[in-house]
Simulated scan of single mutants.
Amino acid sequence: MRIGELAERAGTTTRALRHYESLGLLRARRAGNGYRAYDDQDLRLLRQIQVLRDFGFELEDTRPFVDCLRAGHPEGDSCAASIEVYRRKLAELDECIDRLREVRERLGSQLVRAELASAGGAAEPRCEFSCQADEGSTR
Rank of each mutant, 00 (worst) to 15 (best):
S137P: 04
A7V: 03
T138V: 14
D94I: 10
L45N: 05
C79Y: 01
S82I: 02
Q50E: 00
L59W: 01
M1T: 09
Q50S: 02
A7S: 03
L116S: 14
G34T: 10
L59V: 05
L59F: 03
E124I: 12
K89F: 11
V103L: 12
G120M: 11
A71N: 06
T138F: 11
F65M: 05
C131R: 15
V85R: 06
E105V: 07
E105C: 08
L25N: 06
V112C: 11
S130K: 10
E95H: 15
L46Q: 04
L116F: 12
V85S: 03
R18I: 06
E21A: 10
R101C: 07
A114H: 04
L25F: 04
A119S: 04
A133M: 13
V112R: 14
R87C: 07
G108F: 08
E102G: 12
A28Q: 10
R15A: 07
G4W: 06
E95T: 13
G56D: 03
V85Q: 05
R27E: 12
Q50C: 00
Q50M: 00
D42I: 04
P74S: 15
R63T: 02
L116R: 15
G32T: 13
L52R: 09
Y35W: 06
L59T: 07
L69N: 09
Q132G: 13
Q41Y: 14
E105K: 11
L100K: 14
G32H: 09
A133T: 13
E102S: 15
V85C: 03
A31G: 09
E124A: 15
I3T: 06
L93V: 14
D42F: 01
L100W: 05
G11C: 06
G24N: 06
R113P: 07
L43Q: 02
E95L: 15
A133S: 14
C79Q: 00
D77V: 10
F55W: 07
R2L: 13
I49N: 07
E115T: 00
R2F: 09
L90K: 09
G76I: 10
R113G: 11
G4S: 11
E21Q: 11
E84F: 10
L116Y: 10
